[in-house]
């Protein structure tokens, strides 16, 4: 089991860290953590759950699905997608 991580500073000053496990090009497990503010908070679990089983081409699409249901103060869903992609790419380049 290989966990790959990315850490990035969001535009509003907070930090997001993505820990991801990728098997055969698909996300097996993922945790999006950090000191950011996402509302409603519980949706982080929904986002993580929807990313599981998906490959690189789906990551941006999955996060866009939350544009009307989630608000991140000081960051955009695009920034979260970039963080997930960064961690994913670390894994598949190994």
């Amino acid at each position: 089991m290989v966990i790959c991580s990315s850490v990035r500073r969001l535009s509003g000053g907070k930090t997001v860290k993505v820990d991801v496990e990728v098997i055969d090009g698909n996300i097996k497990d993922i945790v999006i953590s950090g000191d950011f503010f996402l509302y409603p908070e519980e949706y982080i679990h929904v986002i993580e759950s929807k990313l599981k089983g998906r490959g690189m081409s789906d990551i941006v699409k999955v996060l866009k699905e939350f544009k009307d249901s989630v608000e991140i103060v000081g960051a955009s869903l695009d920034e979260f997608a970039e963080a997930v992609l960064e961690a994913y790419k670390v894994c598949v380049s190994r």
């Binding site: 860290k17 820990d19 999006i32 953590s33 950090g34 000191d35 950011f36 982080i44």
Partner: peptide
């Protein structure tokens, strides 16, 4: 710690 933080990282 914040709701989204990992214990080990914070």
């Amino acid at each position: 710690i914040g709701y989204f933080q990992r214990v080990d990282d914070s």
